[in-house]
Write a protein that binds this DNA or RNA. Structure first.
Lengths: 134, 134
DNA sequence: AATTCAAATGCATATTATTGCATATATGCA
DNA sequence: TGCATATATGCAATAATATGCATTTGAATT
Protein backbone atom coordinates (compact mmCIF):
# COMPACT_ATOMS: atom_id res chain seq x y z
CA UNK A 1 0.00 0.00 0.00
CA UNK A 2 2.78 2.37 0.93
CA UNK A 3 4.62 1.57 -2.29
CA UNK A 4 1.47 2.25 -4.27
CA UNK A 5 0.74 5.64 -2.71
CA UNK A 6 4.38 6.63 -3.05
CA UNK A 7 4.30 5.71 -6.72
CA UNK A 8 1.13 7.70 -7.32
CA UNK A 9 2.51 10.71 -5.47
CA UNK A 10 5.64 10.72 -7.59
CA UNK A 11 3.53 10.47 -10.71
CA UNK A 12 1.18 13.26 -9.65
CA UNK A 13 3.46 16.01 -10.88
CA UNK A 14 3.54 17.55 -14.32
CA UNK A 15 7.32 17.87 -14.55
CA UNK A 16 7.91 14.31 -13.55
CA UNK A 17 5.35 13.02 -16.03
CA UNK A 18 6.97 15.06 -18.77
CA UNK A 19 10.31 13.47 -17.98
CA UNK A 20 8.73 10.04 -17.97
CA UNK A 21 7.39 10.82 -21.41
CA UNK A 22 10.86 11.77 -22.61
CA UNK A 23 12.27 8.52 -21.33
CA UNK A 24 9.53 6.68 -23.16
CA UNK A 25 11.23 7.94 -26.31
CA UNK A 26 14.79 7.14 -25.28
CA UNK A 27 17.39 7.01 -22.56
CA UNK A 28 18.39 10.47 -21.29
CA UNK A 29 21.06 12.03 -19.13
CA UNK A 30 20.40 14.80 -16.63
CA UNK A 31 21.62 17.59 -18.86
CA UNK A 32 19.37 16.55 -21.72
CA UNK A 33 16.38 16.74 -19.42
CA UNK A 34 17.52 20.21 -18.34
CA UNK A 35 17.66 21.37 -21.92
CA UNK A 36 14.35 19.99 -23.03
CA UNK A 37 12.41 21.21 -20.06
CA UNK A 38 14.43 24.36 -19.40
CA UNK A 39 14.85 23.65 -15.74
CA UNK A 40 17.78 23.85 -13.35
CA UNK A 41 20.31 21.07 -12.97
CA UNK A 42 19.29 20.32 -9.42
CA UNK A 43 15.66 20.10 -10.36
CA UNK A 44 16.35 17.76 -13.25
CA UNK A 45 18.50 15.57 -11.06
CA UNK A 46 15.86 15.40 -8.37
CA UNK A 47 13.09 14.53 -10.78
CA UNK A 48 15.11 11.63 -12.13
CA UNK A 49 16.07 10.51 -8.64
CA UNK A 50 12.44 10.54 -7.55
CA UNK A 51 11.38 8.40 -10.49
CA UNK A 52 14.34 6.13 -9.94
CA UNK A 53 13.55 5.69 -6.26
CA UNK A 54 10.12 4.28 -7.04
CA UNK A 55 11.73 1.64 -9.23
CA UNK A 56 10.43 3.08 -12.47
CA UNK A 57 13.83 3.77 -13.98
CA UNK A 58 17.10 2.08 -14.71
CA UNK A 59 20.36 3.91 -14.22
CA UNK A 60 23.34 3.21 -16.43
CA UNK A 61 26.63 5.02 -15.94
CA UNK A 62 28.69 5.84 -18.96
CA UNK A 63 31.77 7.75 -17.99
CA UNK A 64 30.60 10.88 -16.26
CA UNK A 65 27.11 10.59 -17.59
CA UNK A 66 24.19 9.13 -15.73
CA UNK A 67 21.80 7.65 -18.24
CA UNK A 68 18.27 7.02 -17.07
CA UNK A 69 15.76 4.86 -18.90
CA UNK A 70 12.40 3.34 -18.15
CA UNK A 71 12.60 -0.06 -16.50
CA UNK A 72 10.43 -1.89 -18.98
CA UNK A 73 10.40 -5.34 -17.39
CA UNK A 74 8.34 -4.32 -14.41
CA UNK A 75 7.55 -7.36 -12.31
CA UNK A 76 4.51 -5.62 -10.87
CA UNK A 77 1.55 -5.83 -13.17
CA UNK A 78 -0.29 -3.02 -11.50
CA UNK A 79 2.51 -0.59 -12.30
CA UNK A 80 2.10 -1.34 -15.97
CA UNK A 81 -1.62 -0.75 -15.74
CA UNK A 82 -1.06 2.65 -14.18
CA UNK A 83 1.66 3.62 -16.63
CA UNK A 84 -0.51 2.57 -19.55
CA UNK A 85 -3.26 4.87 -18.37
CA UNK A 86 -0.87 7.74 -17.87
CA UNK A 87 0.72 7.37 -21.28
CA UNK A 88 -2.69 7.17 -22.87
CA UNK A 89 -3.64 10.42 -21.17
CA UNK A 90 -0.41 12.11 -22.23
CA UNK A 91 -1.07 11.35 -25.88
CA UNK A 92 -3.54 14.19 -26.02
CA UNK A 93 -1.18 16.65 -24.36
CA UNK A 94 0.52 19.33 -26.51
CA UNK A 95 3.33 19.90 -24.00
CA UNK A 96 4.65 16.38 -24.25
CA UNK A 97 4.69 16.54 -28.04
CA UNK A 98 6.73 19.72 -27.89
CA UNK A 99 9.08 18.09 -25.43
CA UNK A 100 9.74 15.29 -27.86
CA UNK A 101 10.55 17.83 -30.55
CA UNK A 102 13.02 19.58 -28.29
CA UNK A 103 14.50 16.23 -27.33
CA UNK A 104 15.62 15.74 -30.92
CA UNK A 105 17.81 18.82 -30.64
CA UNK A 106 19.10 18.09 -27.14
CA UNK A 107 22.75 17.24 -26.80
CA UNK A 108 25.00 15.84 -24.14
CA UNK A 109 26.82 19.05 -23.45
CA UNK A 110 26.77 19.10 -19.69
CA UNK A 111 24.79 21.21 -17.28
CA UNK A 112 26.66 24.49 -17.79
CA UNK A 113 25.09 25.21 -21.17
CA UNK A 114 21.43 25.32 -21.94
CA UNK A 115 20.54 25.77 -25.58
CA UNK A 116 17.43 27.82 -26.01
CA UNK A 117 16.26 27.60 -29.57
CA UNK A 118 19.62 26.06 -30.30
CA UNK A 119 21.78 29.11 -29.66
CA UNK A 120 23.16 30.51 -26.46
CA UNK A 121 25.24 29.40 -23.55
CA UNK A 122 23.73 30.63 -20.33
CA UNK A 123 26.35 29.44 -17.88
CA UNK A 124 27.07 31.72 -14.98
CA UNK A 125 30.62 33.03 -14.94
CA UNK A 126 31.45 32.05 -11.38
CA UNK A 127 29.62 28.77 -11.01
CA UNK A 128 29.45 25.67 -13.13
CA UNK A 129 26.56 24.02 -11.34
CA UNK A 130 23.24 24.94 -9.77
CA UNK A 131 21.62 26.75 -12.65
CA UNK A 132 19.24 29.63 -12.32
CA UNK A 133 16.23 28.39 -14.25
CA UNK A 134 12.76 28.22 -12.70
CA UNK B 1 -2.48 17.16 -18.15
CA UNK B 2 -3.69 19.16 -15.20
CA UNK B 3 -6.64 16.82 -14.77
CA UNK B 4 -4.35 13.84 -14.86
CA UNK B 5 -1.92 15.13 -12.23
CA UNK B 6 -4.81 16.20 -10.03
CA UNK B 7 -6.31 12.74 -10.30
CA UNK B 8 -3.03 11.07 -9.42
CA UNK B 9 -2.49 13.40 -6.48
CA UNK B 10 -5.90 12.61 -5.06
CA UNK B 11 -5.22 8.92 -5.47
CA UNK B 12 -1.79 9.12 -3.84
CA UNK B 13 -3.15 8.92 -0.32
CA UNK B 14 -3.81 5.82 1.71
CA UNK B 15 -7.05 7.02 3.30
CA UNK B 16 -8.53 8.04 0.01
CA UNK B 17 -7.62 4.74 -1.62
CA UNK B 18 -9.20 2.88 1.27
CA UNK B 19 -12.42 4.81 0.77
CA UNK B 20 -12.31 4.11 -2.94
CA UNK B 21 -12.01 0.45 -2.09
CA UNK B 22 -15.08 0.67 0.14
CA UNK B 23 -17.07 2.28 -2.61
CA UNK B 24 -15.99 -0.49 -4.93
CA UNK B 25 -18.06 -2.73 -2.68
CA UNK B 26 -21.09 -0.49 -2.41
CA UNK B 27 -22.48 3.01 -2.12
CA UNK B 28 -21.65 4.67 1.21
CA UNK B 29 -22.66 7.72 3.19
CA UNK B 30 -20.21 9.89 5.12
CA UNK B 31 -20.99 8.37 8.47
CA UNK B 32 -20.39 4.84 7.25
CA UNK B 33 -16.96 5.84 6.05
CA UNK B 34 -16.30 7.38 9.47
CA UNK B 35 -17.18 4.17 11.20
CA UNK B 36 -15.21 1.83 8.99
CA UNK B 37 -12.07 3.92 9.00
CA UNK B 38 -12.44 5.36 12.48
CA UNK B 39 -11.84 8.90 11.36
CA UNK B 40 -13.50 12.20 12.12
CA UNK B 41 -16.59 13.42 10.32
CA UNK B 42 -14.76 16.31 8.69
CA UNK B 43 -12.02 14.06 7.44
CA UNK B 44 -14.48 11.58 5.97
CA UNK B 45 -16.40 14.34 4.31
CA UNK B 46 -13.27 15.86 2.83
CA UNK B 47 -12.00 12.55 1.49
CA UNK B 48 -15.28 11.97 -0.30
CA UNK B 49 -15.34 15.54 -1.60
CA UNK B 50 -11.84 15.18 -2.98
CA UNK B 51 -12.69 11.99 -4.82
CA UNK B 52 -15.92 13.52 -6.03
CA UNK B 53 -14.15 16.63 -7.32
CA UNK B 54 -11.99 14.58 -9.64
CA UNK B 55 -15.07 13.06 -11.19
CA UNK B 56 -14.52 9.61 -9.75
CA UNK B 57 -17.73 9.53 -7.74
CA UNK B 58 -21.42 10.02 -8.09
CA UNK B 59 -23.40 11.74 -5.39
CA UNK B 60 -26.98 10.78 -4.70
CA UNK B 61 -28.98 12.55 -2.02
CA UNK B 62 -31.51 10.55 -0.06
CA UNK B 63 -33.15 12.64 2.58
CA UNK B 64 -30.37 13.93 4.78
CA UNK B 65 -27.92 11.36 3.61
CA UNK B 66 -25.27 11.95 0.98
CA UNK B 67 -24.62 8.67 -0.78
CA UNK B 68 -21.41 8.43 -2.73
CA UNK B 69 -20.63 5.73 -5.25
CA UNK B 70 -18.04 5.10 -7.91
CA UNK B 71 -18.93 6.59 -11.27
CA UNK B 72 -18.57 3.43 -13.29
CA UNK B 73 -19.28 4.78 -16.75
CA UNK B 74 -16.12 6.79 -17.01
CA UNK B 75 -15.85 8.33 -20.45
CA UNK B 76 -12.09 8.60 -20.06
CA UNK B 77 -10.38 5.32 -20.84
CA UNK B 78 -7.19 6.30 -19.13
CA UNK B 79 -8.97 6.69 -15.81
CA UNK B 80 -10.14 3.11 -16.03
CA UNK B 81 -6.60 1.94 -16.76
CA UNK B 82 -5.30 3.71 -13.68
CA UNK B 83 -8.12 2.49 -11.46
CA UNK B 84 -7.60 -1.05 -12.67
CA UNK B 85 -3.96 -0.90 -11.65
CA UNK B 86 -4.80 0.53 -8.27
CA UNK B 87 -7.47 -2.04 -7.51
CA UNK B 88 -5.12 -4.78 -8.56
CA UNK B 89 -2.52 -3.44 -6.15
CA UNK B 90 -5.03 -3.17 -3.34
CA UNK B 91 -5.97 -6.84 -3.65
CA UNK B 92 -2.82 -7.77 -1.79
CA UNK B 93 -3.41 -5.27 0.99
CA UNK B 94 -4.62 -6.54 4.39
CA UNK B 95 -6.01 -3.17 5.43
CA UNK B 96 -8.53 -3.00 2.64
CA UNK B 97 -9.78 -6.50 3.43
CA UNK B 98 -10.33 -5.50 7.04
CA UNK B 99 -12.15 -2.40 5.89
CA UNK B 100 -14.57 -4.50 3.90
CA UNK B 101 -15.24 -6.61 6.98
CA UNK B 102 -15.99 -3.53 9.04
CA UNK B 103 -18.17 -2.19 6.26
CA UNK B 104 -20.52 -5.13 6.77
CA UNK B 105 -21.20 -3.93 10.30
CA UNK B 106 -21.40 -0.24 9.48
CA UNK B 107 -24.78 1.42 9.84
CA UNK B 108 -26.35 4.69 8.86
CA UNK B 109 -26.50 6.09 12.32
CA UNK B 110 -25.21 9.57 11.73
CA UNK B 111 -21.89 11.15 12.60
CA UNK B 112 -22.46 11.42 16.36
CA UNK B 113 -22.01 7.75 17.06
CA UNK B 114 -19.06 5.65 16.06
CA UNK B 115 -19.35 1.96 16.80
CA UNK B 116 -16.03 0.46 17.74
CA UNK B 117 -16.28 -3.28 17.75
CA UNK B 118 -20.00 -2.77 17.59
CA UNK B 119 -20.48 -1.33 21.05
CA UNK B 120 -20.13 2.19 22.28
CA UNK B 121 -21.37 5.61 21.40
CA UNK B 122 -18.53 8.09 21.56
CA UNK B 123 -20.41 11.29 20.89
CA UNK B 124 -19.23 14.33 22.79
CA UNK B 125 -21.83 15.70 25.17
CA UNK B 126 -21.75 19.26 23.91
CA UNK B 127 -21.29 18.83 20.20
CA UNK B 128 -23.03 16.70 17.62
CA UNK B 129 -20.63 17.30 14.78
CA UNK B 130 -16.92 17.59 14.21
CA UNK B 131 -15.77 14.42 15.92
CA UNK B 132 -12.55 13.97 17.79
CA UNK B 133 -11.01 11.00 16.00
CA UNK B 134 -7.52 11.17 14.47
C1' DA C 1 -41.19 28.77 11.87
C1' DA C 2 -38.40 26.27 14.80
C1' DT C 3 -35.88 22.16 15.62
C1' DT C 4 -33.09 18.27 14.41
C1' DC C 5 -29.53 16.07 12.17
C1' DA C 6 -26.10 14.67 8.30
C1' DA C 7 -22.81 16.83 5.79
C1' DA C 8 -19.90 20.71 4.40
C1' DT C 9 -16.68 24.33 5.34
C1' DG C 10 -13.81 28.45 7.42
C1' DC C 11 -9.99 28.97 10.10
C1' DA C 12 -5.74 27.94 12.42
C1' DT C 13 -2.06 24.86 12.91
C1' DA C 14 0.94 21.08 11.76
C1' DT C 15 3.11 18.44 8.44
C1' DT C 16 5.10 17.64 3.98
C1' DA C 17 6.86 19.00 -0.69
C1' DT C 18 9.39 21.91 -3.75
C1' DT C 19 13.28 24.36 -5.30
C1' DG C 20 17.29 27.55 -5.70
C1' DC C 21 21.78 28.10 -4.10
C1' DA C 22 25.99 26.42 -2.68
C1' DT C 23 28.76 22.62 -2.07
C1' DA C 24 30.02 17.72 -2.15
C1' DT C 25 30.85 13.50 -4.70
C1' DA C 26 32.65 10.84 -8.23
C1' DT C 27 34.58 9.95 -12.68
C1' DG C 28 37.85 10.69 -16.50
C1' DC C 29 41.82 12.82 -18.19
C1' DA C 30 46.34 15.32 -18.21
C1' DT D 1 47.96 13.34 -8.18
C1' DG D 2 45.42 17.20 -9.45
C1' DC D 3 42.02 19.43 -12.34
C1' DA D 4 37.72 19.58 -14.97
C1' DT D 5 33.14 18.22 -15.26
C1' DA D 6 28.48 15.72 -14.66
C1' DT D 7 25.53 14.60 -11.09
C1' DA D 8 23.91 14.47 -6.30
C1' DT D 9 22.68 16.63 -2.03
C1' DG D 10 22.45 19.66 2.48
C1' DC D 11 20.25 23.61 3.80
C1' DA D 12 16.90 27.21 3.99
C1' DA D 13 13.01 29.59 2.32
C1' DT D 14 8.58 29.09 0.35
C1' DA D 15 4.48 26.73 -0.98
C1' DA D 16 1.15 23.17 -0.71
C1' DT D 17 -1.50 19.82 1.90
C1' DA D 18 -3.87 17.78 5.82
C1' DT D 19 -6.68 17.99 9.77
C1' DG D 20 -9.06 19.16 14.20
C1' DC D 21 -12.32 22.24 16.03
C1' DA D 22 -16.15 25.07 15.65
C1' DT D 23 -19.66 26.64 12.95
C1' DT D 24 -22.71 26.76 8.93
C1' DT D 25 -25.73 24.78 5.48
C1' DG D 26 -29.69 22.56 3.94
C1' DA D 27 -33.15 19.09 4.06
C1' DA D 28 -36.75 16.77 6.89
C1' DT D 29 -39.82 16.71 10.60
C1' DT D 30 -42.70 18.67 14.09
Amino acid sequence: MRKLTKLLKVLSDESRLRVLNLLQERECCVCEVMQVMEISQSKASRILSALYDTGLLNLRREGRWALYSIDTDQTKNYVNDILTGIMRALESSPVTKEDLERLKKAERIGPACVTRGGTGCLASKTSTAGGTLR
